[in-house]
Design a protein around this nucleic acid. Sequence first.
DNA 1: AATGAACGCAACCGCAATCTC
DNA 2: GGAGATTGCGGTTGCGTTCAT
Length: 326
Amino acid sequence: MGRAPCCDKANMKKGPWSPEEDAKLREYLEKHGTGGNWIALPQKAGLKRCGKSCRLRWLNYLRPNIKHGEFSDNEDRIICSLYANIGSRWSIIAAQLPGRTDNDIKNYWNTKLKKKLMGVINPISQRKPQQAALFSSLLQATSLPSSPSSLLSSSFTCSNNSYYSAQTRSFTEPISFSSSPLSTSSFATASMLQPRETFLGPVQNDQVKDNLLVFGGDASCSSSDGSCSNQMSHVKEEYHDQYGGCTNNNNEQMGVQNYLYNGVGDDQKLMISSGAAAHGGVLNGLWPGDNLPDYGLEEIKQLISTSSCNSFLFDENKTGEKVMYY
DNA sequence: AATGAACGCAACCGCAATCTC
DNA sequence: GGAGATTGCGGTTGCGTTCAT
């Protein structure tokens, strides 16, 4: 049985919003709110728009406190950092940047930030030995667990006594991570596991200190949809893929493993696999090689980890205690 | 000045998750 | 418990603007 369309598209206006439409929508929402039903809203508000379209317009543009314009360096860094660890989870990234929407960040990433990073990827691709050394030093710097097994046997304790068990690969309920400091040994995975509201609060500008990113504080709802939904079901899947059964990317994962077990230590294994498997990323060679037709997620992540963004991830002056607080 | 290419951003689309009845 | 409705999300597209030739 087919699914009914959310609205009668034939009678719906599409395309850019006029100031009049904006005014109608804003006025209605300020008076009545959404009433919990976006589908019915356009009719009530006297708009010939799809409910989805209204919702998007409100959340991406009309909603109060939306920040438009240039992204700051701190915001750049935050985006880089989170992208390197969680990939294109724009809503989660947006939640860390008050006033920014996921659409904004997505656009910004696709049009500017990615290119910025691409500008330095070529030189890196020519430095395999150095990169290996860099990887090594980065991993040392980040104090990752000594082996994947140490992670697999770990659990994440949460503020309200719920926790994630790697052995059972499940969360107890209720799910909530502590916002107290976590060492980077937890970061690679914990950051992928966090529900946005509880684990990562919005990053305040003054929270980026001494090249260390500090997360915490109140949650925000800055996705394009303004949503604050719990991400954990998705995260569970991700984690399952990562350490359990990666069904979609077996080849890539095998490729990772082959590489890992031939070339690098366990620390590296963890770091690489956490990114690669979690996203089902395409590994066009972790070392950008002779054939590099396109830069995949991993290359970008690698780049982020090794170049322009890493200065805030790692305190370059303190090789012994490189701890990020989240 | 004209024109085509590149860019940036708002909006759309489709799918998956969640909710409601 | 199941089906349909609604919401949330990320990828993609379309179009206006800017830039280069």
